Simulated assay, not measured.
Amino acid sequence: MKIDTLVVKGIESHDNPHKAVIPPIYLASTYIQDELGNFQEYAYQRGGNPTRAAFEKLFAQVEGSKYAYAFASGMAATTAVFNLLKTGDKVLLNNNVYGGTYRYVSGIFQNQGISYEMVDDFNALTEADLDDKVRFIFIETPSNPLLRVTDLERVVRLAHSKGIKVIADNTFMTPYCQKCLNFGVDIVVYSATKYIGGHADVLAGLVATNDDAVAERIKFIQKTLGAMLSPFDTYSLIRGIKTLSVRMDRQMDNTHAIIDFLESHEGVKTVHYAGSHSREEKAVHSKQAKDIGAVISIELADGYDETAFVKGLKFFDLAVSLGGVESLICQPAFMTHESYPAQLRAQIGINDGLLRLAVGIENKDDLIADLAGALKGAKK
């Protein structure tokens, strides 16, 4: 099945008495066992739930992975992966990565005796940059919020030559646009709150892998830490993922039209999107993804006021997050990356005037008119 069909038909469950087209929501916290020494698959909700299992099975098919595990949030999924590390290990991350991920590595790793290093450009990574302590390379491509692109195949080849695992946060692209495991990535994580859920009404995370040993450990961590996805929230993902391809097609079509408008407007100095940084990054992204996604960042030209611009918008709500059907705008420096020290933000290029747009499914002409009106009102 193509992914468009799979997200709809792959979740149909005919192994229930009434042959419902979606799996039932099993709310039970515990399950009756037949007898001592003869225990069934499910015993306690934290360890396993039929609704969650059905979705995990579906997502593994969508991702093209042997295993998938659903968590209570994107950070719960990332935390589970970081719990594979041991004292003395080191992680390399691209320098503009989700603020919550940075908050974790900068605030928690030290308590565990784990070190980390922020890398300016993974595409320039060499063997000399990989000391004996490095166990993980953690990549967002495109990155958040500057949409920088990393060559997954190149990094994987380099990492695997040193026995290092590569983890990719694929939240922005989703498996509809980018299949990281196909390029040798060991573990893929998602904030399923975003495009997988698609309606800004659920917190969820996902971990996918083909590695048997990693999968066994992730399942242990899921059960032990207790940050698994609830049955009701799992249902929200089951409902949301069915329209993944339809939503993303519309959002990416809108995004291309908005980029064309913004790049031609005198009030916009810079538009950041996947592949915009350089020809090399554009070529890499075209090789490993089918489109650019629906998140962009912009910087206004001199003589335009960011506060007035945001206030003048009607259809881009000022809010964090992305991936829902509605269009949003935020100021990364203070809304998503506030955990970064100001000096690090300045070094990376996350300046106070940077604005991130998450493009929704509204009519693109309405969205462009909204941006045009706000830019007109923002001119000093």
Rank of each mutant, 00 (worst) to 15 (best):
49 N>A: 06
280 E>F: 11
56 E>L: 09
343 Q>F: 14
307 T>S: 11
166 V>W: 02
212 D>G: 04
31 Y>I: 13
373 G>R: 01
264 S>E: 13
331 Q>G: 01
306 E>L: 11
135 R>V: 13
77 A>S: 12
45 Q>M: 14
374 A>C: 08
291 D>S: 10
139 I>S: 02
288 Q>K: 08
284 V>A: 11
284 V>T: 13
52 R>T: 06
111 N>Q: 14
52 R>K: 11
369 A>V: 04
56 E>M: 07
52 R>A: 02
161 S>R: 10
61 Q>E: 15
312 G>I: 06
227 A>V: 13
56 E>A: 08
12 E>R: 12
26 Y>A: 15
226 G>M: 08
351 N>A: 12
155 V>Y: 01
325 V>Y: 06
194 K>G: 03
139 I>M: 04
84 L>D: 03
45 Q>G: 07
251 Q>I: 00
121 D>I: 08
359 V>A: 04
101 T>C: 03
356 R>M: 15
189 V>H: 03
256 H>R: 06
132 D>F: 06
334 F>G: 13
180 C>M: 14
111 N>I: 07
313 L>V: 06
368 I>F: 02
344 L>M: 14
181 L>S: 04
376 K>P: 01
20 A>L: 15
266 E>R: 12
374 A>M: 05
67 Y>K: 06
57 K>Q: 14
282 K>A: 15
319 A>K: 11
75 M>W: 09
29 S>Y: 09
207 V>P: 05
21 V>A: 11
134 V>L: 09
231 P>I: 03
69 Y>Q: 04
39 F>H: 12
285 H>P: 00
144 N>R: 09
218 I>Q: 01
20 A>F: 11
127 E>N: 13
236 S>D: 14
78 T>L: 10
102 Y>Q: 03
11 I>P: 02
295 V>S: 04
226 G>D: 04
273 Y>A: 01
22 I>C: 06
350 I>L: 09
254 N>K: 04
64 G>C: 08
259 I>S: 02
92 L>K: 03
326 E>R: 10
235 Y>D: 14
138 F>K: 05
30 T>L: 05
240 G>V: 05
77 A>G: 07
286 S>Y: 00
337 H>A: 08
35 E>Q: 14
87 T>P: 05
116 Y>C: 07
55 F>R: 02
194 K>D: 13
